[in-house]
Design a protein around this nucleic acid. Structure first.
Lengths: 229, 229
DNA sequence: CGCAGAATATGATCTAGACATAAGCTCTAT
DNA sequence: ATAGAGCTTATGTCTAGATCATATTCTGCG
């Protein structure tokens, strides 16, 4: 009696995992649960809301709450700044600028970021090292229409990521993971064989509707991205 | 006045993105905010709690709430069943069992799942097709100590994933993404060249402390995993 | 029979107030 | 000086009651 929302949540979870409330079946409504747990309805509500967020149950007004037939399994990944990713492992971080150029944005980039016909972009290629070993290759494009200040920023000492985080505190992003082969240039930078399989992250970010940057991050071969849930 | 928790959340977010509340700075406390928004403290609390969940602010009792210096960017990925992943794209799903064997768990698997010395495991290799094209290769091990029923299950018509979801409604999992090269066998199954870069997901799941399954899912070359945040 | 509008059940959210808990502070006794 | 007791403060959680929003079902009219 007098359960906390954590206890209620745990108990409901338990009943689901134990099979007492089968997948697809209807769960008692908030009022009934509140009574049976001897707590307020808001407490049950919070427990249920969190379970719904976690993808375990499905709630619909009037229709009630049911256990999801196939729980939506979702994983959450932290996307850290490379610097912290490396330093958190206890390794020493080093940054280096490989190349810098101001170009017209190529077609694929204009398409991807919905840029105008002759949009100018700053193209940077950088490397991030952990204890002196190549860790991540960064191939970045910055939209100069939206971020003209980038033209004058100095990217020889610190990476564009840190500059961007400081300049644009928050933005929406589209991120995608894939596998690719290291070409000659990448292989040289990452000190691996050309043709090695590499894990790549691509991220495009927008701020108030305008695309500001696109980046392709390529990790040294063997990199894994792990999480628990 | 009389703001909803969504409005409060949006407004706080806005102040942060606009730089009005700088990274690292202290935000007014709940009571003050509730007054200024003309709502109850619980409303502000919910807005702030969600922002904290999203990694935008950091809250500590007594110390107050501050804007995170470098927002923890996190992406959430749904890990769907292959069947729904394929059907959601409007393609026709087909499943096929490649091989089935009961073996002693190999050393790497025992280590990974913390199994005993002579643990028996069911080893399945399956293929999932979208509109007849190879989509995903599944290399799965099921711990027979914990799931002896798997010995008698029929995996020729439906995949082990669906069987497992039905048998064990919920479990904790460790998931990791990486890039690999297709070897000869994989290349044959996925109808691609040996040496093609492939995206792989590995997942180990536990139920009440016991490992029940380990799976390596390999997607056809070119597969991307995308999300927005 | 079919559709528009009313009734209803249920989750979604809000309120005002209370107590719990952690963390920082000050003061006191050793 | 320092360990610890106790105060203060901000967030965390709970309560009981209420209103709102909406999907579903029911009802009556054409």
């Amino acid at each position: 009696m007098k359960a906390t929302y954590r206890e209620v949540k745990a108990d409901i979870l338990c009943r689901i995992t134990k099979g007492q409330w089968a997948p697809g079946s209807l769960i008692p409504n908030e009022v009934e649960l509140a009574e049976s747990y001897g707590c307020a309805r808001a407490t049950v509500n919070r427990a249920m809301r969190e379970l719904a967020d976690d993808g375990l149950i499905e709630r619909r007004r009037k229709a009630g709450t049911r256990v999801r037939a196939s729980p939506v399994r979702q994983a959450r990944f932290d996307i850290p700044l490379v610097r912290s990713e490396i330093e958190d492992k206890g390794a020493e971080y080093r940054y280096s600028l490989v190349s810098r150029a101001i170009d017209e944005a190529p077609g694929w980039l204009r398409a991807r970021l919905q840029l105008g016909a002759d949009a100018q972009a700053l193209h940077l290629v950088c490397m991030h090292y952990a204890n002196g070993d190549p860790f991540q290759h960064e191939d970045r494009w910055i939209n100069l229409e939206v971020l003209p200040q980038a033209r004058d920023a100095d990217f020889t000492q610190t990476g564009p990521n840190e500059w961007l985080v400081a300049t644009i505190p928050f933005s929406t992003a589209e991120i995608s993971f894939s596998a690719a082969l290291a070409d000659k240039e990448l292989a040289d930078c990452l000190a691996c064989e050309a043709g090695a399989p590499v894990f790549t992250i691509e991220r495009a970010t927008w701020f108030e509707g305008d695309a500001n940057t696109f980046v392709r991050l390529t990790y040294r071969p063997g990199h894994r991205m792990t999480t628990r849930y």
